[in-house]
Design a protein around this nucleic acid. Structure first.
Lengths: 216, 216
DNA sequence: TCGTCTATCGACCCACCGGTCGAAATCCGC
DNA sequence: GCGGATTTCGACCGGTGGGTCGATAGACGA
């Protein structure tokens, strides 16, 4: 009934339990795909099941409800982005360098690796309230990463926000969360080049005019 | 059956036609209200009807379908924002001044006057495809206003975009369209002060560091 | 006052979808 | 190959919500 999939290595679990975990992850992958394409309301469990070549009733063997299924999707994706952004921060570097790498990474994530996340960054009215709470809670954690880096940069004198840093942060989030909505892979630029341009532009809001940083 | 409400003065129309137009506008007002609160999918015609103290079937006397009703709402709001932004442009002034006024006005519009519009700026998956087409078409027209002002400013040397101006414009739209999602009237700042801060921050992406402009 | 045109309504239809249930099939350790 | 646990399934249920229809009430001009 419950959908937990910690411990990806599966150490200490019976083979049958590992198999179940694989199945759950497969379901989560497909469900995330459908949610990314259709949004929450337009996602029907019938469609998720069909793509898995499964009967809808079988889904209820793994998840209690549609909400629980989607919540698990979001949890997975949110944990992954938090991990990857966290890794960048702990790699060290100046705040400017770190922030630039965060900006690039988040764009890669929301446009390519986990497009369903781009739907989640907005406070959609289409989510049921319990999920909205989860989303909000997660956005706060997400923002904390950026907040810390920006505050470091302000203290170090690398960033000169013209106004309340919280406002600047909101504007940065807005610009970044918006990228998946206008990004189109067959545009005039290669994705990496585009992401760099966005980084250059967004960093201006913190008074950063310096150039680019080689990726780690 | 059709929902047109041109010619607000109602010149040359019979009294009965003017009455119908008033009714249609009343319906549009309430429908926009519900859509703003609930989003498209969660808006039920039953609720719209109930707020109007009307039977759902009566709505179909004025509109062919839910889609047509909501489309009319969006048309109305889009026309209004286009008119107001257009007015600002035609008032003249330097590109920096004009752009700043556009930024302020759009925030007033999406957070206060027409909150349902904030739902429209994002390419929601919750909209049915025909409405999405309408939305996209309208967004192009909307963007044209900003594009012209920004190009003027670049030519005049007031703006120095660090990258492709289209990218900068996307970032500006992102930051602005995002405001309604974090804006909260009982925050630390008065709304006008907040909008000015956003304007200051966003204009940095165009290399504008000069101060504020008195409203007209 | 009468006939027409408009507005409103209750009742109904139906497709969709989340969720349930009990039974059948499959897997797995022994 | 046997028995229990796990997985899968088809059939079904009930609520919701967009949309239809025919009838009725009301407004308006002649």
């Amino acid at each position: 009934m419950v959908a937990r999939e910690e411990d990806p290595a599966g150490a200490g679990l019976s083979r049958i339990e590992r198999k179940r975990i694989r199945r759950v992850n497969e379901i989560l992958r497909v469900a995330a795909e459908v949610v990314a394409e259709r949004g929450y309301q337009n996602t029907s469990l019938d469609e998720v099941a069909e793509r898995l070549d499964l009967a809808k009733a079988s889904l209820y063997h793994y998840f209690d409800s549609k909400q629980a299924l989607v919540a698990a999707c979001l949890d997975t994706a949110a944990a992954e982005v938090e991990r990857r952004l966290g890794a960048i921060v702990s790699e060290g570097g100046t705040p400017s360098e770190t922030l630039r790498r965060l900006i690039i990474e988040q764009q890669v994530f929301t446009t390519q690796d986990r497009p369903e996340l781009s739907r989640l960054f907005l406070r959609h009215l289409e989510w049921p309230p319990p999920l909205l709470d989860k989303i909000h809670e997660w956005l706060v954690r997400h923002d904390r990463i950026w907040k810390a880096v920006i505050e470091d940069g302000v203290r170090a004198g690398e960033f000169q926000p013209a106004t309340d840093p919280a406002v600047v942060r909101h504007c940065i989030h807005g610009a970044l969360d918006f990228v998946p909505f206008w990004y189109h892979p067959d545009g005039r630029y290669r994705p990496e080049e585009l992401f760099e341009q966005v980084a250059d532009t967004v960093l201006l809001m913190l008074g950063v005019t310096a150039g680019r940083v080689p990726p780690r």
